[in-house]
Amino acid sequence: MSLDVNGITVRLGGQNVLTEVALSVPDGAMVGLLGPNGSGKSTLLRALWHALAPERGAVLVDGADVAALPTREVARRIGVLTQDDGTDARYTVRQVVETGRLPHRRLLGADDTPGDPVGEALRRAGAVEFADRRIDTLSGGQRQRVLAARTLAQATPVVLLDEPTNHLDLAAQHDLLALFRRLRVTVVAALHDLNLAATYCDELHLLDAGRLVASGTPDDVLTPERIGAVFGVAAAITTNPLTGTRAVHLGPRHETGSTS
């Protein structure tokens, strides 16, 4: 399912948080949103599933304006994995993952999908062995797997990830992105780690102060000049010998200057 953002402007508290952002995400692509804190990554993600209404412009999911879709229909198309949420600590893992099935349930509780989508999601996210424990007994990494399992249970053709790798150790960061990559759904992920972005994403969009400053393949977007201008650090680019993708090396700007 493709996503099209037609020049949206989002205003919050009288200020433009996003200005004229236009991009499209092809069906099945994994796309990264990059940019420093406050550049508008999370705001853009929230606009994508219409948690925020843009002042101008529109977001189209498979050609349909999200603003015109009922909340439930949006939830059947777009799943959201945020950094953390206010889930009541006394729910069990399985109960939390079950809420992911809500958009697929009728009023009397019957699920429209045969089989065991909750068990399947728990298994894929590696959360089976603590499925019956309470949320407040889990580590940060386990908790993030539970939230990933809930997003998997929602079984949407589009998944939005808002800095999903926070709280995760190195292996878990790769596992999470590889997991969503393998799903072959359309993914838009706000990421801080440029190397993770270069490794897993087909396309990157670089945001700075609410404006899109670069879009393209990781090779196009990740240049020392752009990284220096947007993030305020010196950068050097090499090729990652393990993956063949771009590897970004960073340092303080005043010491190394910008090299290529």
């Binding site: 009922p70 909340t71 949006v74 959201v80 206010g86 809420t99 809500l102 349930r105």
Partner: peptide, 24 residues
């Protein structure tokens, strides 16, 4: 009782409930 699953979604916060299709 029919709406209990929505109440569970709401317990995780209005924004989360909305992302799961609850017209909060």
């Amino acid at each position: 009782l029919l709406r209990a699953p929505w109440l569970d979604a709401l317990a995780a916060g209005p924004e989360l409930a909305r992302s799961q299709g609850v017209p909060v």
